[in-house]
Write a protein that binds this DNA or RNA. Sequence first.
DNA 1: CTTGTTTGTAAAGGTACCTTTACATGTGGA
DNA 2: TCCACATGTAAAGGTACCTTTACAAACAAG
Lengths: 67, 67
Amino acid sequence: MKVNNKVREMRQARHITQVKMAEDLGITRQTINAIEKGKYNPSLELAFRLLAYFDVPFEELFYIEEE
Amino acid sequence: MKVNNKVREMRQARHITQVKMAEDLGITRQTINAIEKGKYNPSLELAFRLLAYFDVPFEELFYIEEE
DNA sequence: CTTGTTTGTAAAGGTACCTTTACATGTGGA
DNA sequence: TCCACATGTAAAGGTACCTTTACAAACAAG
């Protein structure tokens, strides 16, 4: 069971760089990059911050990979 | 910023023990207990499994503590 | 060509998440 | 009383998440 996300799509749709997003969220650029590349999932707390940042419901940002 | 959950309420409303829930989910009873007691948040993957287990949307199980 | 911008990635360190094993408390029923 | 059941908790170990620091590649603008 693998969790995927649409962070990159959401970010690019808003014309925001990883750098700016990291600053806005108070986390590092590496963390955003790792999450976008699927290296690991965000913690539940960071997931909440991402939802607020993009102003989307949970289901629009995270989903289970179809198999 | 603290994430809270309603795992205990959801579980008790369904008359399920921590033991049975742990078996159903394939995790340990200690993990469920720790999450219910707020010792730590579940991973995003486990959060997904909990949503499926209780058949509720994300917002009904997890929320940000008002402060 | 040189510079700035954006993104990718790696190593090392700290904390959070989850496990296995184990012991303890409280409650209800035979 | 005795026993089964449900829950709480602790210690030790492994992996995931996130950090700081650093270097590299791709690209567009000047």
